[in-house]
């Protein structure tokens, strides 16, 4: 089976690779933001429009036909709210109409996990899974495939 991978979207992906690469290799000073993470595998970068499409369940398959399994943090989680506002320009509550609509077409929202650690464990153990954690949460078990930049949060030192 060929490895799952996404088609590059040149400009956005290139920019994202630069940002993600900077975050991953800059050492002790990660940029504030939200790291979109997956378990080790052939997917190394995903551009932000694709991340948004994945978390709206508009994109459900990797290019090899395997299922994309997005996971969310709880709606009240600060990182979840930032993620939603940055990617969709809407709060989790404001997305409710969208998900109600999707429900009638047989599409459910991403599963919710209680903590960032749970997200990390899930994406590491589940093929095709993708989640997000604070960029401050440097963890060698996962790779960062995208960085949602520009959040106001700062990493504790």
């Amino acid at each position: 089976m060929p490895p799952p991978r996404l088609r590059p979207r040149l400009l956005a992906t290139a920019a994202l690779m630069l940002m993600a690469g900077t975050w991953r290799h800059a050492g002790a000073a990660p940029e504030p933001g939200i790291a979109v993470v997956m378990g080790p595998g052939p997917v190394t970068t995903v551009n932000l429009p694709t991340v948004a499409a994945i978390f709206r369940r508009k994109r459900q398959l990797w290019d090899d036909g395997s299922l994309i399994v997005p996971v969310n943090l709880p709606a009240a989680h600060a990182l979840r709210r930032q993620f939603s506002l940055r990617l969709f320009k809407r709060s989790p509550e404001d997305m409710q109409d969208y998900w109600n609509d999707q429900y009638f077409h047989g599409v459910l929202p991403p599963a919710v996990l209680a903590s960032e650690e749970a997200v990390i464990r899930f994406v590491v153990s589940t093929p095709g899974a993708i989640g997000y954690v604070s960029s401050c949460t440097q963890d060698k078990r996962v790779i960062v495939v995208a960085l949602v930049p520009g959040t106001d949060a700062s990493c504790p030192h």
């Binding site: 997305m95 429900y103 459910l108 929202p109 991403p110």
Partner: peptide, 10 residues
């Protein structure tokens, strides 16, 4: 069962 933004219905 409300899951946040989504209905998590069904």
């Amino acid at each position: 069962a409300q899951s946040g933004e989504g209905p998590a219905i069904g």
